[in-house]
Nucleic acid binder design. Structure first.
Lengths: 216, 216
DNA sequence: GACAACATACCGACCAGTTGGTATGTTGTC
DNA sequence: GACAACATACCAACTGGTCGGTATGTTGTC
C-alpha cells in the first residue's frame, strides 16, 4: 500500500477525492455505467490526474474497494456495540447497528463491495479480489465474536463462527438488492429481524419477541 | 442465414434469441458492460432486428427480466418438490432443489433479476420494476407454502410467509454475490444449510443435523 | 400491395486512455 | 546554502475506437 506519500496534509489530494467519488457514483450507477469523466467531474480533478494516480479505470475500482474496506472497518471498529462484554451481545449489537445505519437514500447505505463484486467479477480480477476480500474480511471479524459466543454457550453440531459471519453478510447483501427494488430500507430491517431470530434460536436464547434481544 | 424461413411462432425468432442472449451475457458481464452489438452477435441477428423488436437497450433489459420470470417460473413449477403433501416439506424441497441446481459455472446458476436489479435500479425504472417483480413474485409463491405451513404448525408471533419468502430470496441473492467472489457455489450451499436450520428451528422441528429434514 | 421481419449502412456522442507539458517539491553534492 | 538532478502531482487537448440508435433497403407472407 502506497497511500501515504507526501501530502500537504491540510487539503485532500486528487487520489482520495477520486476514491470518494467512486464510492458515491458506483453505488448510484454501477461501475460500468460510471465514466472516468464523471468521476473526475465529481472529484473536481482532471483526467490527467486520474491516470497519473491509477493505471486504468479497473485499477481505480480495485483501489476504491480497498478504500471502502478501510473506511467501513473504522466505522464498525469504533461503534459502541463492541464494548459489550458478552460476545453474543456484540453480535446482536452489530445487527442493531446495521439496522440503525440503513436509512435515507438506498445508494447511501448499500455496499460498494457487494455492488462491484456482483457486476465486475467476470471482467476484472483485481476488482473481484479486492471486493470479495472486503466482505470476507468483515465476515472474519464478525466470526471472532461468534466463535467466542459458541465457545461460551454452545451451538448445534457443525455451526462455525465463520460460516455464520459469511451467512450474515449474504443475508445483508441480498437485502440490499431487495432494497434497491423497493426503493427503501425495509428489506434490510426485515432481514435483520430474521437474522436476529435465527441467532437467538441457534443459541437457545428465548428473547424471541423482543427486538433488541439479550439484555441480560 | 439460418432457419428464418419459418417465422410463424414455431421456431426461435430474433426476439427470443436476443432475450436468451441477454440472460447469458448479462449474467456473465453485467448489463452496462454488455453491448447491443455483442447481444446481436450471440443471438446471430443484426442490429436492425434488435431495434425492430426493442425500442432501446433498456427495453430489452426489462423484457429479458420478464423472460427470466417466465422461464424460472416454469422451472420451479415443474419441479418434483411441489408434489409433497406437507407445505413445510415443499419449502424444504425447494431449498434442496436450489442446492441441486447451484452447480457448474457461477454465471450459470446466478440470477439475472438480482444482477440487473443491483446494477440498473438507479438508471432504468423499467428494468428495476421488472427485475424486482421477478424476485417478489417468486417470493410470493414461496409464501403460499410457508403460510400453509404456519397455519398447520404455528410459528412465533409476527412471522409471516411473505416475510420468510423474501428473506429466503435475500439470503440466496447474497450467497450468489459471495459465490462470484469465491468462484464456486459453496456459499450458496452454506446459505441454504443455514436457511434450512432456521426454518426447522422456527417451526420447532428437530431434524437439525440431518440434511434433508422432515422426511415423514 | 400491405405489412411484419428482418438486413445494411451509417451517425454523432461518448468512451478509456495518451500526449506533451508545467509547477512544485525533494534529495544528494559541494 | 546553493544548485543540479530528479520525482511527484497535476493539467488541457487530443485520439482512435466503441457506443446506442437511426434511416433506409430487402424479402417473404397474407
Amino acid at each position: 500500500m502506497n497511500t501515504s506519500h507526501t501530502l500537504p496534509a491540510g487539503k485532500q489530494n486528487a487520489r482520495s477525492k477520486l476514491l470518494d467519488a467512486a464510492i458515491v457514483l458506483v453505488r448510484q450507477q454501477g461501475f460500468s455505467a460510471t465514466s472516468v469523466d464523471e468521476l473526475c467531474a465529481m472529484a473536481d480533478v482532471t483526467k490527467g490526474a486520474f491516470f497519473h494516480h491509477f493505471a486504468s479505470k479497473d485499477a481505480l475500482g480495485a483501489a476504491a474497494a480497498d478504500h471502502w474496506t478501510e473506511t467501513s472497518s473504522v466505522l464498525f471498529m469504533d461503534a459502541d456495540y463492541n464494548r459489550h462484554e458478552d460476545p453474543l451481545d456484540r453480535y446482536l449489537g452489530y445487527l442493531d447497528f446495521r439496522e440503525e445505519i440503513a436509512t435515507g437514500e438506498v445508494a447511501d447505505f448499500t455496499c460498494y463491495a457487494g455492488t462491484s463484486l456482483q457486476e465486475c467479477y467476470g471482467s476484472s480480477d483485481a476488482i473481484r479480489d479486492a471486493a470479495y476480500q472486503s466482505i470476507a474480511g468483515h465476515s472474519e471479524r464478525l466470526a471472532e465474536d461468534l466463535d467466542q459466543a459458541i465457545a461460551r454457550y454452545g451451538v448445534p453440531e457443525g455451526v462455525t463462527g465463520l460460516s455464520l459471519g459469511l451467512y450474515t453478510q449474504a443475508a445483508l447483501q441480498g437485502a440490499f438488492i431487495l432494497a434497491k427494488g423497493q426503493g427503501n430500507a425495509a428489506p434490510v430491517h426485515d432481514a435483520i429481524v430474521h437474522l436476529r431470530r435465527y441467532i437467538l434460536l441457534l443459541f437457545d436464547r428465548e428473547g424471541l419477541t423482543q427486538k433488541k434481544g439479550c439484555e441480560r
